[in-house]
Design a protein around this nucleic acid. Structure first.
Length: 254
DNA sequence: ATGACTCCCAGTGGGAGA
C-alpha cells in the first residue's frame, strides 16, 4: 500500500491540485494539513465523487487536518486524547489494518515565545499518547508536518538556521523522543539525494534555489518497518502555478 | 534587513506561517 502526507496550505485554494495529484498518484490514503476549513465548508462531496472516503477535522482560518482513504477509515480519533486543545491538529483512523496518525505540529514561531512553549507541551502529549497507541496498534504510521528539521542535513543552511525555530535542540530532542518509541523515519531508511527538502519559503526564490527544510515526515511503527519499500518526496507540485509551500511525502509499504 | 510571499479575515492593514 501507498500512504502520503501533504500540507496543502488551504484546501480551498489547493483542491484542484490535490485532485490532480491524487489522480496521478494512486495512494491508498493521504493525510492533509492546514486545510484551514471548518467541517461544514470541507469539500467532501467533490472528494467523495473522486472515490475518496473523507474524514476531516477543521477550524476557521488556521490548522485543520483530514484523512482521505480508498477504503473507509475506522476508529477515528480527533486530536490527542487527554490533551485539551482548541486547535485542530491531529486526525487518526485505521485503514486496511494500518493505524494512520495524521498530525500538524505547532509552528512554534520563536524559541522564546508562548507558541514555542505550546509546541513543547503538544509534542510531550503526542509522545505520551503515541506510546499507548503503539501498544494497541503496532502497525502504526505517524505522518504529517512536524515543523521540525531533525538534523543539520535536513536544513539548506544549517549555520544560518542554528538555534532557529524548527532547528532548536529542544525540538530535535522531541523528534528523537518519538523515534525512541520505536518509530523510524521512513525517508532515512533509504539512500536519498542530498539537499532533500519538503518545504521551501515562498519568498526570495527559495524553491528555484532549492533552499528549504525537511520538516514533513513519515514515521513507521515497529510492526510495519520490515514492509517499508520506499519513501520519496514529490517536488513536482511545488512547481505548480499557485503551489503549496510544502511538497507531498509518500511511503510504500509492501 | 523587524524584508521578501501567500493565505486568511478583514476592510484599504495585520497576523500567521516557517
Amino acid at each position: 500500500m501507498k500512504l502520503a502526507t501533504w500540507n496543502v496550505n488551504s484546501l480551498a485554494v489547493r483542491l484542484p491540485q490535490l485532485l490532480e495529484w491524487l489522480d496521478a498518484h494512486p495512494v491508498d490514503a493521504i493525510v492533509l494539513q492546514e486545510t484551514k476549513l471548518t467541517d461544514d465548508r470541507f469539500p467532501a462531496a467533490e472528494l467523495e465523487a473522486a472515490g475518496w472516503c473523507v474524514q476531516r477535522f477543521g477550524q476557521k482560518t488556521y490548522n485543520g487536518v483530514a484523512l482521505l482513504s480508498r477504503a473507509a477509515a475506522t476508529d477515528i480519533v480527533l486530536n490527542i486524547p487527554g490533551f485539551d486543545d482548541e486547535q485542530a491538529r491531529v486526525i487518526t483512523g485505521t485503514v486496511d489494518g494500518v493505524r494512520i496518525v495524521g498530525a500538524y505540529a505547532p509552528n512554534g514561531q520563536a524559541p522564546d515565545s508562548d507558541k514555542f512553549a505550546y509546541k513543547m507541551r503538544w509534542l510531550d502529549a503526542l509522545r505520551d499518547w503515541l506510546r499507548d497507541e503503539l501498544a494497541r496498534h503496532p502497525q502504526l504510521v505517524l505522518m504529517g508536518d512536524f515543523n521540525i528539521a531533525p538534523e543539520d542535513r535536513d536544513v539548506h543552511d544549517p549555520v544560518a538556521w542554528a538555534g532557529q525555530i524548527h532547528c532548536t535542540p529542544q525540538e530535535r530532542a522531541h523528534f528523537r523522543a518519538l523515534l525512541e518509541l520505536g518509530l523510524v523515519d521512513a525517508f532515512r531508511l533509504f539512500d536519498q539525494p542530498p539537499k532533500s527538502w519538503t518545504w521551501w519559503d515562498y519568498r526570495n526564490l527559495a524553491f528555484r534555489k532549492n533552499q528549504g527544510l525537511r520538516i514533513d515526515h513519515i514515521l513507521v511503527g515497529p510492526a510495519l518497518q520490515p514492509r517499508v519499500q520506499a519513501c520519496t518526496i514529490d517536488k513536482a507540485p511545488r512547481r505548480n502555478e499557485r503551489p503549496s509551500d510544502h511538497a507531498p511525502v509518500v511511503v510504500e509499504i509492501g
